[in-house]
């Protein structure tokens, strides 16, 4: 993998991610499902793994951290900001500035090339085209895809597409990186490359939250959370 490090990634912004009695219940028939019980936690810099059985509430937690979903009670604080008190547009701006996302499937925009996909957050942020292009190129070569910049997502392998997604997540130099089973769809070898790419920002002091089923994957993290029936506990 290439050793290019763009200036964007050298200046590491770090910011504290915190939950305060965060909970989520879903209405279900006449009753309620408690997907997440009140959970207070300060995420330390570096990588935090979240493990737990299917349906335990891992994605629910991540969606609340990301601001995709509204908590039933409690708050998510990033630095001084309670992200759920922001307007929808304000939250979008906040995500653009401070968050990076990697999903289980790459979720790239099908009609944009790899390069254009990576440029997209910068375009939203109003970065001038020249700079955009350079930063996107640098990120793509960091994930080892300098030869694939003009490919459409449909012409990339699953592993390559996921690497493009990581480049897109990192291009804005976010302080928080959220990943929901990023290796879930990949073979072991591709998965290893992805994990290696995610541990790098963690080492640089970003807060990385990684949801996984896989104990071996979780072992790579610095801190560990376990979810069972909506109850989150800190391990070791």
């Amino acid at each position: 993998m290439s050793a290019v490090s763009p200036s964007a990634l050298l200046v590491t912004s770090s910011i504290q991610l915190q939950t305060e009695a965060l909970s989520r219940t879903y209405p279900s028939g006449d009753g309620q499902i408690t997907a997440l019980r009140p959970f207070s936690h300060t995420f330390a810099a570096g990588m935090t793994s979240v493990v737990g059985p299917s349906g335990s509430g891992k994605s629910t937690l991540l969606n609340l951290l990301a601001g995709f979903d509204t908590p039933s009670s409690g708050a998510v604080r990033v630095g001084d900001t309670d992200i759920h008190s922001l307007s929808e547009a304000g939250r979008a701006d906040f995500r653009l500035k401070h968050y990076g996302f990697v999903f289980q499937s790459h979720n790239l925009v099908a009609i944009l090339s790899a390069q254009e996909n990576v440029e997209f957050p910068l375009m939203l942020a109003g970065v001038p085209p020249r700079e955009r292009r350079e930063r996107a190129r640098a990120l793509l070569s960091q994930v080892g895809l300098e030869g694939r910049t003009h490919h459409l997502p449909s012409h990339l392998s699953g592993g390559e597409a996921q690497r493009v997604a990581i480049a897109r997540a990192l291009v804005g130099n976010p302080a928080v990186l959220l990943a929901d089973e990023p290796t879930g769809n990949l073979d072991t070898r591709s998965g290893e490359i992805i994990l290696e790419l995610l541990t790098r920002p963690a080492r640089e002091g970003k807060t990385v939250v990684l949801i996984t089923h896989d104990a071996d994957v979780a072992a790579l993290a610095d801190h560990h959370l376990r979810v069972r029936d909506g109850e989150v506990t800190v391990e070791r």
Partner: peptide, 12 residues
């Protein structure tokens, strides 16, 4: 796709 755009920081 729109969900993704919104997730990575596009305003409504």
């Amino acid at each position: 796709e729109f969900g993704t755009l919104r997730a990575i920081g596009a305003r409504p």
